[in-house]
């Protein structure tokens, strides 16, 4: 189980790295889709079919929207990490070095907290349900819903769903406002 997931994750990392270094924006988007659809298989292996259905549909819709955005625009990536001067010698751009240094410092910062947290986590596959044991035990009787995820989503933690619906509504209003060229008469 862990081996299968590791192989899938390595493929996803390769896809992510290619997405960030591709010259063409369209191929970058499509290799970002590798990560998204790999996530679907991971969810299926991890016994989360609800998430798999949502992720596969959302990934497709996102891909359509993103391709629609870039298709009329420029598709060339603008990467200038190496600058040539007049004498023909080339050197690496100073700003790029600065960016990479920032990444390294932030990565070390995150690595510190990851190292702190990983000791307290249970090893993979031996999760002890502390908070959710009440949900698992009584959810079907208290809510009457056979799907426990729906029971949690709409009964025990319905405020989260309300917040999600509000965020989606706000995003739609924002998109309509940003993309309006002529004002409404």
């Amino acid at each position: 189980m862990e081996l299968t997931l590791s192989i899938l994750l390595v493929f996803m990392i390769i896809g992510a790295v290619y997405a960030l270094f591709a010259r063409d924006l369209l191929s970058a988007l499509i290799s970002c889709g590798i990560v998204g659809y790999g996530l679907v298989i991971c969810f299926l292996l991890l016994k989360a079919p609800d998430l798999a259905i949502v992720q596969i549909v959302v990934e497709t819709v996102t891909l359509i929207i993103m391709v629609a955005v870039i298709l009329d625009s420029t598709r060339q990536d603008l990467r200038e990490k190496i600058v040539h001067n007049e004498r023909g010698t080339h050197f690496i751009n100073a700003k790029y070095v600065f960016n990479v240094l920032t990444v390294v410092i932030l990565a070390l910062f995150f690595l510190f907290f990851f190292n702190q947290a990983i000791g307290r986590l249970e090893p993979f596959g031996t999760h002890v349900t502390r908070m959710a044991s009440a949900y698992v035990g009584d959810a079907a009787i208290k809510t009457g819903s056979a799907n426990l995820v729906t029971g949690v989503l709409f009964d025990f933690r319905a405020y989260d769903t309300l917040g999600e619906a509000t965020i989606l509504f706000t995003a739609v209003v924002g998109v309509l406002t940003i993309l309006r060229i002529k004002g409404r008469k």
């Binding site: 991890l46 609800d50 933690r157 924002g174 993309l179």
Partner: peptide, 25 residues
């Protein structure tokens, strides 16, 4: 399997779609 992280991630996926389309706009 613990249903609580699954429910949270389910809302997070849709919120991610909303923010991503806003960024695209």
């Amino acid at each position: 399997v613990d249903p609580l992280p699954q429910a949270m991630v389910l809302t997070a996926i849709v919120i991610g779609l909303a923010t991503k389309s806003m960024l695209m706009a």
